[in-house]
Amino acid sequence: MNTEFTQEFEALLVKTAELITGDTSPEMVEKIKIWAIYNHIHKSLPALASHWNQTHAVGKAEVRRIFEEVRDLNQALKAAQTTNQQ
């Protein structure tokens, strides 16, 4: 793959992590990748997501934990932004 593209796409992921969670750590960027890919699969191929969930209970629990963490961080970030605007 083109190195320039890879760097530009990684920058997109970092910005996405920042906008959604306020955290740009490599660990959070990796969680955002998982969150985004699983979210896309769940919406566009629900039968595949359901099958995977049924056969990978530990993986399903980890995805759920990541989704809840991203959600909680996003809500906290929005609350902080609302407080700062007032």
Results as ranks from 00 to 15, higher is better:
2 N>Q: 10
4 E>A: 12
4 E>G: 03
6 T>K: 15
6 T>V: 13
8 E>N: 10
9 F>M: 09
10 E>T: 06
11 A>N: 04
13 L>S: 02
14 V>H: 00
15 K>W: 02
17 A>S: 14
19 L>K: 12
19 L>N: 15
19 L>F: 06
19 L>G: 13
20 I>Y: 05
20 I>C: 09
20 I>M: 11
20 I>S: 01
23 D>R: 03
23 D>L: 00
25 S>H: 01
25 S>G: 05
28 M>C: 06
29 V>M: 01
29 V>C: 04
29 V>N: 00
31 K>H: 14
31 K>C: 08
31 K>E: 11
32 I>H: 04
32 I>K: 00
33 K>G: 01
34 I>V: 13
35 W>L: 05
35 W>D: 10
39 N>C: 04
40 H>M: 14
41 I>L: 06
42 H>P: 00
44 S>I: 03
46 P>T: 03
47 A>M: 06
48 L>T: 07
51 H>C: 07
52 W>E: 04
52 W>Y: 12
52 W>P: 00
53 N>T: 01
54 Q>S: 11
54 Q>M: 06
56 H>C: 02
57 A>E: 08
58 V>R: 10
59 G>N: 02
63 V>G: 02
64 R>Q: 13
64 R>M: 14
64 R>L: 15
64 R>A: 14
65 R>Q: 15
65 R>V: 06
66 I>M: 03
66 I>R: 08
66 I>P: 03
67 F>I: 10
67 F>N: 15
68 E>N: 15
69 E>I: 15
69 E>C: 11
72 D>C: 05
76 A>I: 00
77 L>F: 02
77 L>Q: 07
78 K>P: 00
80 A>H: 07
